[in-house]
């Protein structure tokens, strides 16, 4: 079916034409924040691979702020045990960044598997998160890593990844979060501008990702040293429902002492009853999660993962 958006021209050349908007092309985070203060309902655009689909699905922005020319959004830094990844990095740039590969190579490897070659050159980590599509994988990876979203100009400068989903369970939200936070003149102060994600690596022992059962079930898993024990945090993804993050603590000091089967069962038992989705019952998904978590823990156990310097395991 061909649709015609008002004002887009007499003949739609595309399946659903994109409505006109005013374009802003700032060069710094401060300029973006200033623009958001004037245009609080503006849409933020980076790689546009998902945004163009949203626009064709009926989203009508009056103002569009392209952040492609904002160099601060392209940075990767590792200071004081915190890894910061700029929201404007494409999947290709981010996964191949030397600092990420040196600091958290398992995240780099998992990131390198996301999407197709062509999408990877355009799509950004920020867009992947803020599109709020259940099938996208960065919320799963970063959920297990307990990453924080860093938001410029917002009332709360840091939010956990779960904040993306709020109380709603809808798929396909806004690139900038305006719908979920309630569009309006003050809403942008709540959501701000996503400048990047921050991952605490100071107590991180191991991270891995299992996507062999995608899209039914994916599992990202991180092992941290907390008070001398190991905390296993897993985020469960699916094409059809929002990710779920659960943690369990194993009273052992080293990954070699972990029992994959018992950790898998412990994680699965903590999943909520509404874990069922179109791909399977709660029982089926718990079984899958136990198997996938067990595989990851076995890999961690065999990897010889060592506690970071200064962290007692």
């Amino acid at each position: 079916m061909r649709a015609q958006a008002l004002g887009a021209g007499l003949v739609a050349q595309t399946q659903s034409s994109i409505p006109p908007f005013e374009l802003h092309r700032p060069g710094s985070v401060a300029e973006v924040v200033a623009l958001l203060a004037v245009h609080p309902e503006a849409v933020i655009a980076a790689g546009c691979t998902d945004l163009t689909a949203q626009l064709r699905e009926g989203r009508v922005p009056r103002d569009l702020i392209s952040v492609r020319r904002v160099p601060d959004l392209q940075q990767v830094r590792h200071d004081g045990g915190v890894l910061r990844i700029g929201a404007g990095l494409t999947h290709h740039e981010g996964s191949r960044h030397p600092l990420l590969q040196a600091t958290l190579p398992s995240l780099a490897a998992a990131w390198a598997d996301i999407a197709t070659v062509r999408i990877r050159y355009s799509a950004t980590i920020g867009g992947n998160l803020l599109a709020r599509r259940f099938r996208y994988e960065m919320p799963v990876l970063l959920g297990a890593l307990e990453a924080d979203l860093e938001l410029a100009g917002a009332t709360e400068p840091r939010r956990p990844v779960d904040w993306l989903w709020g109380g709603g369970d809808h798929d396909g939200g806004d690139h900038d979060g305006s719908e979920r936070d309630g569009a309006g003149a003050g809403a942008w102060r709540t959501r701000g501008l996503l400048t990047g994600v921050a991952i605490d690596t100071s107590d991180l022992l191991w991270f891995g990702y299992e996507r062999s059962m995608r899209p039914t079930t994916t599992v990202a898993l991180a092992i941290r040293v907390v008070d001398g024990s190991l905390r296993v945090t897993a985020t469960i993804g699916s094409e059809y429902r929002r990710p779920v993050t659960v943690s369990t603590t194993a009273d052992v000091a080293h990954p070699t002492d972990l029992d994959p089967g018992s950790v898998g069962r412990a994680v699965a038992s903590r999943l909520p009853d509404d874990i069922e989705d179109r791909a399977g019952s709660a029982e089926y998904r718990r079984h899958l999660v136990a198997v996938l978590v067990g595989r990851l823990v076995a890999t961690a156990r065999d990897s010889g993962a060592q506690a970071p310097e200064g962290v007692t395991a």
Partner: peptide, 13 residues
């Protein structure tokens, strides 16, 4: 030099 989907790329980019 990089492959992109021109259907999902704005001309201004």
């Amino acid at each position: 030099d990089l492959p992109v989907a021109s259907c999902s790329t704005f001309a201004f980019d």
